[in-house]
Design a protein around this nucleic acid. Structure first.
Lengths: 160, 160
DNA sequence: TATTGTTATACTCTATAACTATA
DNA sequence: TATAGTTATAGAGTATAACAATA
């Protein structure tokens, strides 16, 4: 008798005979979807105060790692379309986090570089994203398990 | 000298100094996104011949597992909005895979049940989704590692 | 007043196709 | 002919808000 009858109980608890999704839980894909949506939402939450979206954080990361990269190479690295990169690079350029530089040999392409401001922002973003993962995964998994999950996902992702 | 000079090489290989995303690869979330998008795309591919989408497969699964469930409970179980369930249940009902049954005590709700046809479809769908996961993950992970990945994702997902 | 199902609407993310300027 | 960047457009997947019927 853990639940006194007069206590206010949410409607969903009163009627529900515990709706289960055990059939779906046997699939890696379903658990990954459920997890990923929460991760993405929390990423959005921690990046918003920095003026970044999840996508622009990714773009900034690749530009920081690969100075003078072109938008096409960027799209290739992130598995996105070239057309989608335009607005993302626009946003980062407008905030002076990256710069589009013309290339002497080829007037079609840009050489993208992170500005000093962009590099400082990226360091700050890395910190908050690391904290976000620590908070989300650290509550359930120990260090070894988190490293294991990362390793498994890295291997699968690289193979696909 | 593994590459003879005269061989036709894709443009991306000729110019590219190997664009990396190692900074992002340190994050679980990024690897999960990259993996999840491929998984979802492949799920779509194997379910399409059965006349199912990823979302309707999920709905059908929960209805099979929970006979006489309502649309609101369904939305709760799948973490979707009630409004979104309408079109999904419509699709499954139109194909005679589930039925909307009126409830004696409450004329607002439906009691959803899978039809015999719907149950047969679900068994077939389960088979192809299992094969899809075997194909995607089995190529990189052994049985033990796949079980481990499933277990880690289940635990994280349930905690979120 | 609250809940179920419903509709209309809007928003995010991403892809496709066509264009331009260069090569 | 082919490529880089751009633009316009469309699609999928969801969420939000308001409504009618019912509780």
């Amino acid at each position: 008798m853990a639940r006194p009858e007069k206590t206010a109980i949410p409607e969903t608890d009163r009627n529900a005979p515990a709706v289960g999704d055990e059939l779906l839980r046997q699939f890696i894909g379903y658990n990954m979807k459920r997890t990923f949506l929460v991760v993405r939402e929390d990423m959005h939450r921690v990046l918003e105060p920095l003026g970044l979206k999840v996508a622009t954080f990714s773009v900034l990361s690749v530009v920081v790692e690969n100075p003078d990269i072109s938008q096409s190479q960027l799209a290739q690295a992130l598995k996105l379309e070239r057309s989608g990169m335009v607005v993302l690079v626009d946003a980062l350029e407008n905030d002076d986090h990256i710069s589009r530089n013309r290339v002497p040999g080829d007037r079609r392409t840009y050489a993208l570089r992170a500005t000093p401001k962009g590099r400082r922002l990226w360091e700050k973003a890395r910190t908050v994203v690391e904290a976000h993962e620590e908070a989300l995964f650290g509550a359930v998994l120990n260090e070894e398990e988190r490293a294991l999950l990362l390793n498994l996902l890295q291997r699968v992702s690289h193979a696909l």
